[in-house]
C-alpha cells in the first residue's frame, strides 16, 4: 500500500523533534526509572544502585503482604498456650504438626470443607449452564419483550444478596430449606455478570461466521454446542474460575441460611473453630489455611483465567 505522504512527513517531523530534544538536553541527568522498564544508557554503577534499590523496595513490599500470612502459619503451628507464655515471639514455639489432623477430627473441618465443595460445584455448574443459555437467547434469538427481559437481568445488579438478605432468609425458612444444600445455593444459581460476560463472547463471533453456519444448516442447539461455545472457550473458562472464587468465598448468605453447626460451610465455620477453648486457638488458624488451599491451587493453575476474569467483571472475594 502506498504510504500517505502527510503521515510520513509527520513522522519525520516527530523524529526530528525528538532528535532535537536529545541534543538540547545532554546535561540533564537521565530520568530515574521509577515506573517503566525503559532502558536508558547510564553507567554500570548507577544501574547497579538502581537495581538494588528496586529489589529492596520489592522485598519491603513483599514483607508487608506476607507478614500476615506468616503470622497465620506461625500461630497455626505453635501450641497456643506455650506460645503465649513465651511472650508471642516472631518464631514458632513447640511446633504441633498434627494441628491439621485435629482440625479435621475435633472441629469437623472435613465436613464443612466437603459442604463448601458441594455448594461451590452446584453453584458454578448451574451458573455456567443458566448463563450460557440466557446469553444465547440474548445474543442470537429474537423474541417479544427481549428488552424487558434484559432490563430485568441488569436490574439484579442492584439486588445483591446483601440487600435482599433478610427477605431471602425468610423465604428459605418458609420453604423449609434452612440447613440444606438447596437453601445454600438457590439464590446463586444465576448471575447477571455471567450472562453479560458470555453474551459478550457470543456477540464477538463474526457475523459472516453466523451466516455461514446458517447456510451450512446448523440448528440452534448444534450451533450453540459446536460453534458458539467452543469459540467462547476463553471467556467461559474465565467465568468458571471467577464463579468458583465467588462461590467458595461466600460468607453472608451461608451464615444466615443455616442455624446449625453441621450445615456451616468452611468460611462460616472459621468464625467458631477453636474459639471456645484458648488452648485450641491454633485449630482455627489451621482451618483458615486449609480453607484457602483450593483457591491457592486455582491461583497457581489458572492464573491467566483469574486475571482475565477479575479484569472483565466486578468480583468480590
Amino acid at each position: 500500500m502506498a504510504t500517505d505522504p502527510t503521515v510520513s512527513a509527520a513522522n519525520e517531523q516527530n523524529r526530528l523533534n525528538q532528535t532535537a530534544e536529545k541534543i538540547v538536553d545532554p546535561l540533564v541527568p537521565a530520568p530515574y526509572d521509577n515506573d517503566k522498564a525503559v532502558q536508558s544508557p547510564r553507567s554500570g554503577l548507577r544501574n547497579a544502585v538502581a537495581t538494588t534499590t528496586t529489589y529492596l523496595v520489592l522485598t519491603a513490599l513483599s514483607v508487608i503482604v506476607l507478614f500476615p500470612i506468616y503470622m497465620l502459619l506461625l500461630r497455626a503451628l505453635s501450641s497456643p498456650l506455650k506460645y503465649i507464655s513465651a511472650g508471642q515471639p516472631l518464631y514458632p514455639v513447640s511446633i504441633e504438626w498434627d494441628v491439621f489432623n485435629r482440625a479435621f477430627g475435633q472441629a469437623s473441618l472435613g465436613r464443612s470443607m466437603g459442604l463448601s465443595f458441594v455448594v461451590t460445584f452446584v453453584i458454578v455448574i448451574a451458573q455456567v449452564l443458566t448463563s450460557v443459555l440466557a446469553a444465547y437467547a440474548f445474543a442470537f434469538l429474537e423474541f417479544p419483550l427481549k428488552k424487558l427481559a434484559f432490563v430485568l437481568v441488569i436490574g439484579t445488579l442492584l439486588l445483591p444478596i446483601e440487600v435482599t438478605l433478610i427477605a431471602n432468609v425468610e423465604i428459605i425458612r418458609k420453604l423449609h430449606l434452612l440447613n440444606s444444600v438447596p437453601g445454600l445455593t438457590f439464590p446463586f444459581l444465576v448471575t447477571a455478570i455471567g450472562i453479560f460476560l458470555i453474551r459478550q463472547g457470543f456477540l464477538g463471533i463474526p457475523r459472516d461466521l453466523r451466516d455461514a453456519s446458517e447456510l451450512d444448516g446448523y440448528g440452534h442447539l448444534r450451533f450453540l454446542f459446536k460453534v458458539a461455545m467452543p469459540m467462547s472457550k476463553a471467556i467461559i473458562g474465565s467465568f468458571i474460575v471467577i464463579a468458583f472464587l465467588g462461590a467458595w468465598n461466600q460468607y453472608v448468605w451461608p451464615r444466615f441460611a443455616t442455624d446449625r453447626g453441621a450445615w456451616q460451610t468452611v468460611q462460616v465455620a472459621l468464625r467458631t473453630i477453636g474459639s471456645e477453648n484458648p488452648g485450641e486457638l491454633n485449630l482455627g488458624f489451621a482451618a483458615a489455611i486449609v480453607a484457602s488451599l483450593p483457591l491457592l491451587a486455582l491461583l497457581i493453575f489458572f492464573q491467566r483465567q483469574i486475571v482475565r476474569g477479575l479484569t472483565a467483571g466486578a468480583v468480590k472475594g
Binding site: 503482604v65 506476607l66 500476615p68 500470612i69 503470622m71 497465620l72 472464587l245 467458595w248 468465598n249 460468607y251 468460611q267 462460616v268 472459621l270 468464625r271 482455627g284 488458624f285 482451618a287 483458615a288 480453607a291 484457602s292 483457591l295 491457592l296 486455582l298 491461583l299 483469574i306 477479575l310 472475594g317
Partner: peptide
C-alpha cells in the same frame, strides 16, 4: 497471593 483469601480467612489472619 491474597486473591486466594476470602473475607473470612482475612479476618482470621
Amino acid at each position: 497471593s491474597t486473591v486466594a483469601s476470602s473475607v473470612a480467612v482475612a479476618s482470621v489472619v
